[in-house]
């Protein structure tokens, strides 16, 4: 979503803009609209989930208890911490502190990787418990109405999986930001880019809040 670097001199706007303020506002606005589209993307799946959550309330509440609440809560706390460090990185880059920016970015990325690791561990655990109804794997659900519980797990994997894809994309762009910060060529442009990335990273966190609540917390 960022405008890629041009060869123009430092602190000059891209050729289509009159000045830097206009460019910064345009970038921000573009990113927010993009986030609105992301919201609708997840929203479509949440809508489908809501329909079935409403249709089979008991089964879905029961199925939710088979998820690991402790790990889920821990992951939620982890993710918000990474968002905090991302916000701090934004402030550091605007204050012109290169080393601090780098450090904060590294912490953000590190926490993100740990989050994905824990998520992967959870999936593996559910796989060993035979709660993974994909690709024809055996699904042995201990509760009532296994066919409807299967629907719950379908949504669980779709939502967490799509979220993990977004996290991974975020990690890639953040790594690029690390490289840019290392080089420290055009701090004003870098500030814009890190702000845009920060928006994306925080948005992924917002989505997680709702995934966590609807999947883990709405239990019997």
């Amino acid at each position: 979503m960022t405008t890629t670097p041009s060869t123009t001199s430092k602190a000059a706007p891209d050729e289509q803009f009159d000045d830097l303020t206009q460019q910064r506002q345009a970038d921000l606005m573009g990113m927010w609209i993009f986030l609105a589209t992301e919201l609708m993307l997840f929203g479509g799946i949440f809508t489908a989930f809501t329909v079935y959550r409403f249709a089979y309330p008991e089964v879905f509440a029961e199925a939710a208890t088979h998820l690991d609440l402790k790990l889920g809560t821990f992951n939620t706390a982890l993710l918000v911490t990474s968002s905090l460090f991302m916000a701090l990185a934004e402030r550091a880059v605007n204050a012109g502190q290169r080393r601090k920016t780098l450090a904060f970015l590294f912490v953000t990325i590190g926490i993100g990787v740990v989050f994905l690791g824990i998520k992967g561990y959870e999936w593996h655990h559910e796989y060993t418990e035979k709660l993974m109804p994909i690709l024809g794997l055996a699904f042995e659900y201990p509760g009532a109405h296994p066919d409807r519980a299967e629907m719950f797990f379908n949504f669980y994997y779709v939502l967490t999986g799509l979220h993990a894809v977004h996290m991974s994309l975020g990690l890639v762009t953040l790594s690029v930001m690390v490289v840019f910060t290392w080089r420290w060529r055009d701090p004003s442009r870098l500030g814009r880019q890190i702000q845009i990335n920060g928006l994306y990273w925080a948005f992924v966190d917002v989505v997680w809040v709702f995934i966590f609540t609807t999947q883990y917390l709405l239990r019997a």
């Binding site: 589209t37 929203g43 479509g44 799946i45 629907m151």
Partner: peptide, 24 residues
């Protein structure tokens, strides 16, 4: 901007239903 992502979500669900055999 507001409608297209919902199509994307729907198509994701459809593709997953067909490829991974999950039922939505």
């Amino acid at each position: 901007v507001l409608a297209t992502p919902v199509l994307s979500a729907t198509l994701i669900l459809l593709i997953l239903e067909r490829m991974l055999g999950i039922g939505i």
